[in-house]
């Protein structure tokens, strides 16, 4: 009997030894993670970038990571419900801009969630006019408003789409006080709706993106659909990191012509407004810190290996990994900066 007990004890010990790394790993992170995103679209930049990161993360950690495009409202609810680490989220600056603009369903992310590492920038946030518009540049737009012309800008209210509009209005206020009333928003929804407003002549300027609108800028001016970039909100140094071939038939150098300092939308008369749309993780406030650290460490190693950067750049994203602690501080400072812009013009 003693021999049998010894054998069982030895077998149990061996099993425990073999199993312990598996159990330890499983205790750190679940084997199936649902990555919710703040967009309902699978054709947009949030899904595309999240899919790239999810695939790399799944490979690195040897787990399953499934991206669910459920939209901001459902994503925040799902994240709030789950502190086990089985639901995590990727979103972008909309998550705090929505709160600054007072949009329903957007709590203060810095109070209600753990802000995680940043992963990439989409440098494509753009403003466009019709190719045959009398306004051919941002200077023309500002001059038209200063001359008393009503300039209608198609945006989606309460977020990334509106921040550039707020900055434009602020710039007109700074350079031509009182004329900012001539910059008026046309609140609409999807990119398709914004494009349609331009096709109909219902908007003079639309918010768009390099990815979604570049092909329209290649059309002849007599085509009803033809558009022209007049402003990219990204910083010059952000666009400079893109591949030289740029996007579609527009090279990086051509895109740089639409960023500051070539296009000036002043913040305060001396400094230009810029806005980089950054993607980052959000975690449930009560999620185990070790689990968050495990994801952060995995991302650090993924970015150190260097392959993900190539994939992101090929899709016109600028890799921008910042560890969790650094990212949280950085994004909080960024939020405070844009709060000033919004407070200055109070578009609502």
């Amino acid at each position: 009997m003693t021999g049998l007990f010894k054998s069982i004890a030895a077998a149990a010990g061996f099993a425990a030894m073999v199993a312990s790394p598996v159990l330890a790993s499983a205790a750190d992170l679940p084997s199936n993670i649902r990555l919710v995103i703040g967009s309902k679209s699978t054709g947009g930049d949030t899904y595309q970038n999240s899919a790239i990161v999810a695939e790399a993360l799944a490979k690195k950690l040897d787990i399953n990571v499934k991206v669910d495009a459920v939209g901001s409202s459902e994503a925040f609810k799902a994240l709030q419900r789950d502190s086990r680490g089985t639901t995590i989220m990727i979103f972008h600056d909309q998550s705090y801009l929505g709160n600054l603009y007072g949009v329903r369903g957007y709590d203060d992310i810095f109070d209600n969630y753990v802000v995680g590492p940043t992963v990439a920038i989409n440098p494509g946030n753009a403003y466009l006019v019709a190719k045959n518009s009398p306004m051919q540049s941002m200077e023309d737009v500002i001059a038209a408003a200063a001359a008393g012309q009503r300039v209608r800008v198609a945006i989606q209210a309460g977020g990334v789409s509106e921040i550039g509009f707020s900055a434009l209005k602020n710039a007109v206020k700074v350079t031509h006080p009182g004329a900012e009333e001539n910059i008026v928003p046309v609140n609409t929804g999807s990119q398709a709706d914004k494009n349609q407003l331009m096709f109909d002549g219902q908007a003079d300027v639309i918010n768009g993106s390099v990815q979604a609108n570049e092909q329209f800028t290649q059309l002849d001016a007599d085509d009803q659909k033809a558009m022209r970039f007049i402003w990219l909100t990204a910083r010059e140094e952000t666009i400079e990191q893109a591949n030289p071939e740029g996007m579609g038939d527009t090279t990086r150098d051509e895109l740089l012509a639409f960023t500051t300092p070539n296009v000036s939308v002043t913040l305060d008369g001396s400094k230009d407004f810029t806005f980089d749309k950054e993607f980052f993780f959000l975690f449930n406030k009560d999620m185990d810190a070790e689990q968050i650290a495990a994801i952060d460490t995995a991302l650090k190693e993924i970015y150190a290996a260097g392959d993900i950067q190539k994939t992101q750049k090929a899709s016109f994203f600028i890799p921008n990994y910042k560890p969790q602690a650094e990212a949280a501080t950085y994004l909080k400072a960024k939020r405070d900066e844009y709060r000033h812009v919004i407070d200055a013009i109070s578009t609502k």
């Binding site: 679209s41 699978t42 054709g43 947009g44 930049d45 899904y47 595309q48 899919a51 990815q211 979604a212 609108n213 570049e214 092909q215 329209f216 290649q218 059309l219 659909k225 996007m247 579609g248 090929a314 899709s315 016109f316």
Partner: peptide
């Protein structure tokens, strides 16, 4: 087709008037 467009974006293919 709103979901289908994701197949193009995941492959980095632009879908627009020149597609």
């Amino acid at each position: 087709t709103a979901i289908l467009i994701g197949a193009f974006t995941l492959q980095g293919i632009q879908v627009g008037p020149l597609f």
